[in-house]
Design a binder for these strands. Sequence first.
DNA 1: TTATATACTTTGAAAATCAAAATAATTTGT
DNA 2: ACAAATTATTTTGATTTTCAAAGTATATAA
Lengths: 149, 149
Amino acid sequence: MQNSIEAVNELLVNLFNDILTIEKAALESGPFNDLTMTELHVIEAIGLTPRTMTQVAGQLGITVGTLTTTINRLLKKEYVLRNHAQNDRRFVEITLTHKGKLAHRLHESFHATMVKSIVDGMSEEDNTVLIESLKRLTEFFREQYDIKK
Amino acid sequence: MQNSIEAVNELLVNLFNDILTIEKAALESGPFNDLTMTELHVIEAIGLTPRTMTQVAGQLGITVGTLTTTINRLLKKEYVLRNHAQNDRRFVEITLTHKGKLAHRLHESFHATMVKSIVDGMSEEDNTVLIESLKRLTEFFREQYDIKK
DNA sequence: TTATATACTTTGAAAATCAAAATAATTTGT
DNA sequence: ACAAATTATTTTGATTTTCAAAGTATATAA
């Protein structure tokens, strides 16, 4: 049992590092290599519908001030648009440009390919087990540590 | 099938973000809260046996120059020692101090608690499925993207 | 209509990162 | 043996990422 814990922990830690390494390498060799990883994560967090600064910063666990500087750079690189909300002009609405949406889609498909590699080789039952395990882990975290979502 | 891919992807992405958030929160509220996340990751990468700069930097996917600055800070905070190897004085051997080993152990036990939460509630067979899934994913990455280990 | 609250940006400073140049130690080729 | 090449690391100069706190603009409440 202690053995399983060690094994799962090591696998998760390695997976973690591998995914970060691969994402970085994929980004640098792809068509959107003027983006940094931070910028790409911001693009992912924005997604396809307009989001406010507070929403995006909260989702990424960074301060709104930090996000402002990243958005400034993404504006200059023409990946996003910044507009005041017409109903309440305090709110800023961030939207992806066409280029931003392309980058978003490419990164999504990169993720899909990654995940496909596990799911494809699995039986239906094993697949269910994997999903349930991941769900349990996520739920445990959220309960235990009170994550806001 | 397309459905499973979406589900697993979303779960992995959430897990990823959650773990980062929780690790940061745990660090900030614990006894070693003078450490940044980067510094903690360096301490984890060093582990309990002496490592060289190139080894540690490679493992973390950062340049050796970047690592030097982090090690400088960890030296000042007394978490590590820096010594030349006696057989080949070009090599630097980084070792954890007593304090460094304590931080290392605390972080390890944090990880163990995390993982225990999944493994504990599982049957022996489901456990095997989870481990095999994670192994397959890791191996796929390493083959596909030629990660050095 | 002043005061308060909310959403965001700016500022100042530290930490994290890289590429390229510099330093130091070892190995290789002649 | 000794100059040249290689290897391991540090330093330098610059950019990015980050935060906390102060500042700005807009909306709500008293």
